[in-house]
Computed example of a mutant assay.
Amino acid sequence: MFTVALPLALAFIMLTLGMSLTPADFGFSLRRPHPLLAGVLCQVVLLPLVAFLLIRLFSLPGELGVGVLVLACCPGGITSNVMTRLARGDVALSISFTALASLITTITLPLILTVGGRALMGTALPAVSITGLGLKMFVMTTLPVLLGVLLRQRRQALTQRWERPCEQMANGLFVLILAITILSEWQTLVANLTSLGPVLLLLNLGMLAIGTAVAQILRLPASQVSAVAIESGFQNGTVGIAVGALLVGGSGPEMGLSAYSLPSGVYGVLMMITILPYLVWRRSIQAMADPSVIEG
C-alpha cells in the first residue's frame, strides 16, 4: 500500500504546485537571479552540509542519519509558498525557487546520498542508483510540476476553479502521510527521540537563521529575506518520506515505513511549530518596511 500510495500522493502534491505556476514564474528566475542564487546557496549547498555536520556532531545512528540527509536534500513545497505568503514575503520568488529546486534535486539528491550515505553507513546504501533514483525523483516531483504548468496553460479556467480544492487536498495528504509515518514508526521515534530531536530542531532553526543572514548580507529587501529564509528552513517532508521508502524498495503495510523516512515525518511536525514565531517576526518587519501591505 505504502509503496504505491506514497509516490502517488507526492505526485498529486507536486501537480498541485505546478497548477499554481506559469512559464512566467520560471522566466522570473532568469530576470532576477540575485535573490534566487541566495536561495540556491542556502538550500542546495549549505543545508546538506549543515545536516551532515549535525549528524556527525550528535553521532546519529546510520539509517536515521541518512534519513536526515535525505530531508536536507529535499526541495521546499507548497507549504513553503504558503508560509512565505503568511510572512508577507516575496511569494513569486518562493514559487520560482521551489520550481528550480525541484529540478536541481533530481540531480543533487542521488549524488549526495551516494557519497554521504556511504560515509554515514560505512557501505553503499541498499539499491541506490544515481540514474534510477534520479529518474524516480523526476517522475514523482518534476514531471507532475511540469504537467501542472501545462494544464494551467491549456485549461486555465478549469485549473483556477480546482486549484484551491486541490491545494487543500494536497495539504491534507501531507498531514495524513506525516501521521502514518509517525504512528508506524512510533517505537523507533521514542527510542531515538533524544538523539533525533535536537538534530532536527537545530537544523530547522539553524537554516532559518542562515537563510535570513545570507539574504541580509546580500542586502535583499525584507520580503525576499523572508522568502529565502523560509525556503532554506522548510523542506518537503513528503518527498523525504517517499525517497526514504524508495531506499529500501518500499515496505509492506505490516512493516510501516523505514527509519530512512522517520526524520522527514518528525521534521514536518517540528517545522510547523518553530515557524510560527518566525512568521510573527517577519510580518512585523515587513509591516515596518511597507506599512501599506496589510493582506495575508
Rank of each mutant, 00 (worst) to 15 (best):
Leu17Ser: 03
Arg88Leu: 03
Gly67Asn: 03
Phe26Pro: 06
Ile285Thr: 12
Val293Ile: 04
Arg85Asp: 00
Lys136Cys: 03
Ser184Ala: 10
Leu176Lys: 04
Leu196Pro: 09
Ala9Met: 08
Leu53Pro: 01
Ile275Ser: 15
Leu193Tyr: 12
Pro7Glu: 06
Ser251Cys: 11
Met169Thr: 14
Ala179Met: 15
Gln224Gly: 00
Met83Asn: 05
Val175Arg: 05
Val128Gly: 01
Ser232Tyr: 04
Glu185Lys: 07
Ala99Thr: 13
Ile217Glu: 12
Leu6Thr: 09
Met288Gly: 05
Gly240Val: 03
Ser94Arg: 00
Gly67Asp: 01
Ser29Cys: 15
Ser80Phe: 07
Pro221Leu: 00
Gly250Lys: 06
Val139Tyr: 09
Asn192Arg: 12
Phe12Ile: 13
Ile182Gly: 07
Val145Ile: 15
Ala227Gln: 05
Pro277Thr: 03
Tyr278Pro: 02
Val248Glu: 13
Gly250Ile: 02
Gly122Arg: 01
Leu143Ile: 12
Ala289Lys: 00
Met140Arg: 09
Leu208Ile: 13
Leu46Thr: 10
Gln216Glu: 15
Arg161Phe: 11
Ala87Asp: 01
Pro253Asp: 12
Ala215Asn: 12
Ala124Asp: 11
Ala51Gly: 08
Met137Pro: 00
Leu57Pro: 04
Val280Arg: 15
Leu202Met: 13
Pro291Ile: 02
Leu189Glu: 01
Ala170Cys: 05
Leu200Glu: 11
Thr108Phe: 11
Gly148Met: 04
Ile182Thr: 11
Leu193Gln: 13
Phe26His: 02
Thr194Asp: 09
Gly265Leu: 09
Leu109Ser: 07
Leu120Asp: 01
Leu218Pro: 02
Ala119Phe: 10
Leu176Tyr: 08
Met288Glu: 15
Gly39Asn: 06
Ser195His: 14
Gly252Trp: 10
Leu208Tyr: 15
Gly148Asp: 04
Leu147Gln: 08
Met169Pro: 02
Arg219His: 14
Leu71Asn: 03
Val175His: 06
Ile210Cys: 06
Gly237Lys: 01
Gly206Arg: 05
Ser232Gly: 07
Val139Gly: 00
Ile13Gly: 00
Leu41Ala: 15
Ala215Lys: 06
Leu41Asn: 08
Ala127Phe: 10
Ile241Cys: 06
Gly148Trp: 03
Ser284Phe: 06
Pro198Phe: 10
Glu63Asp: 14
Ala99Ile: 09
Leu57Thr: 14
Ser80Ala: 13
Ile104Glu: 03
Ile112Ser: 02
Met271Asp: 07
Ser284His: 14
Ser251Asn: 14
Ala242Tyr: 05
Val44Asp: 09
Gly27Arg: 14
Val190Cys: 11
Val293Cys: 01
Thr79Phe: 01
Val214Arg: 02
